[in-house]
């Protein structure tokens, strides 16, 4: 395979986008297998550090998706998240992150088609950016997390 296959970390909220991905499965809507999903209760749980951590660890792209405004299972988690994302997104692109590496979407649990569409778009846009060289650590301090 000559084409570059990007690695993408996706953070989905349990109630909406994770559900949309489930429904995309039920409906057998195929999309590229390039991303790995971290399930969160709510996009409100997403610490901006996770986005930086994924890039630092070599992710070529990051995709965050949750409930539409007003649909949040926790009333306002996604509203608080949106403010953080806005700032972080602005900052990262201002310091030279390629537009196309970091994606945000609202996908309700009924929107399997939108899920498929955005999944494809995310993978293609990240692919077009090429490998992440600027936001990854040169050497990873690999090793297992400590277990208490």
């Amino acid at each position: 395979m000559s084409e570059f296959e990007p690695k993408i970390v996706a953070f989905f909220c349990n109630w909406c986008t994770y559900g949309a991905a489930d429904l995309a499965g039920v409906s057998r809507l195929d999309y590229p297998p390039n991303f790995r999903v971290v399930r969160l209760p709510c996009t409100g749980r997403l610490n901006p550090k996770y986005i930086l951590e994924a890039f630092k660890r070599g992710a070529d792209g990051v995709w965050i998706s949750g409930c539409h405004p007003g649909d949040c299972h926790y009333i306002a988690g996604n509203y608080h998240a949106r403010r953080k994302f806005m700032l972080l997104h602005h900052m990262l692109e201002a310091v030279g992150l390629e537009p196309g590496r970091l994606h945000f979407s609202w996908i309700s649990s009924a929107e399997a088609n939108k899920f498929q569409e955005i999944a494809r778009e995310v993978v293609e846009k990240v692919r077009a950016c090429g490998p992440n060289v600027n936001f990854r650590k040169a050497e990873l301090d690999l090793g297992l997390p400590e277990v208490a």
């Binding site: 509203y79 949106r82 403010r83 806005m86 945000f104």
Partner: peptide
């Protein structure tokens, strides 16, 4: 402080 609150109509153009 702005990160302790929100408005339903906050900017959202960067979100698909």
């Amino acid at each position: 402080p702005p990160l302790t609150t929100y408005r339903p109509d906050d900017e959202a153009d960067f979100i698909k």
